[in-house]
């Protein structure tokens, strides 16, 4: 029996992978960008945002959850898949309040950066204009629920790194939302601290450290010079 090489192809390019890697991990390690929002290499992937959907041997799969296997033929950077990603982004933009011009996360926001990457030129769909509110009761952290994309990274970070379980997802479907684990349901009564991993992990402008917005000038923000497809391949970026 001959050894089967640990290689697969992405958009026709052959790459090697380590056994146990997901397609996403293999791709990023080989310098191939795959759009993603809920995936963060520090946390267990859960395939919820669906932006990393690729076709594996013709079948749609989440690249962040499917194991890399020898001989897989993967399509990712195709007009059809990017078109679907653009629609997903448009739906995320219209179901929340993602008004980049006034948002302190602008230039550092993965949702915004992916909007640019996927050439999203308009929201396309009607805005929901939800009234989800802001919780600024914590002295050093605030959460703008209107900007939450329910990636669940804060839930994982608080549970798995901070050991606090400050955040959880509640509700179903369109009524899904982040809730705060405290007697009043407010951030100010929770165990959250400004140094918690849960505060820094938010890929959008939902969970924010207070009083530091706009401290980094235009030109020095993460995505000011290089797009997310380049920055995501740098060692210290997700």
């Amino acid at each position: 029996m001959t050894d089967i090489a640990n290689t697969l192809t992405i958009d026709g390019r052959t790459i090697s992978f380590e056994p146990g890697q997901t397609i996403m991990q293999a791709a990023l390690a080989a310098g191939v960008f795959m759009p993603h929002l809920c995936y963060n290499p520090e946390f267990k992937p859960h395939g919820s945002c669906k932006l990393c959907t690729v076709t594996v041997n013709g079948r749609p799969q989440s690249a962040c959850t499917i194991a890399a296997m020898p001989g897989q033929e993967i399509q990712s950077d195709t007009p059809e898949l990017n078109g679907r990603r653009r629609v997903l982004l448009q739906m995320l933009f219209v179901e929340g309040h993602h008004f980049c011009p006034g948002c302190e996360k602008s230039g550092n926001c993965q949702l915004q950066a992916l909007g640019y990457e996927m050439e999203m030129l308009s929201p396309h769909f009607s805005h929901f204009f939800p009234d989800r509110g802001v919780d600024a009761t914590h002295p050093d952290v605030m959460i703008d629920f209107g900007r939450c994309i329910m990636c669940e990274l804060c839930v994982q970070a608080s549970r798995d790194v901070d050991g606090k379980n400050v955040f959880a997802l509640a509700g179903r479907g369109l009524a899904s939302h982040v809730v705060v684990n405290s007697p009043s349901g407010k951030l100010g009564d929770s165990a959250l601290e400004v140094t918690d991993k849960a505060v820094e992990v938010c890929p959008v402008g939902a969970i924010l450290r207070k009083r530091v917005g706009f401290a980094v000038p235009i030109g020095e923000r993460i995505y000011d010079h290089d797009p997310i497809s380049v920055k995501a391949l740098e060692p210290d970026e997700a």
């Binding site: 006034g102 948002c103 917005g213």
Partner: peptide
């Protein structure tokens, strides 16, 4: 109203 004060100088210039 209801927005954090450090956001105002950037938001209101719009």
């Amino acid at each position: 109203e209801g927005r954090p004060y450090w956001e105002v100088p950037v938001a209101v210039q719009r």
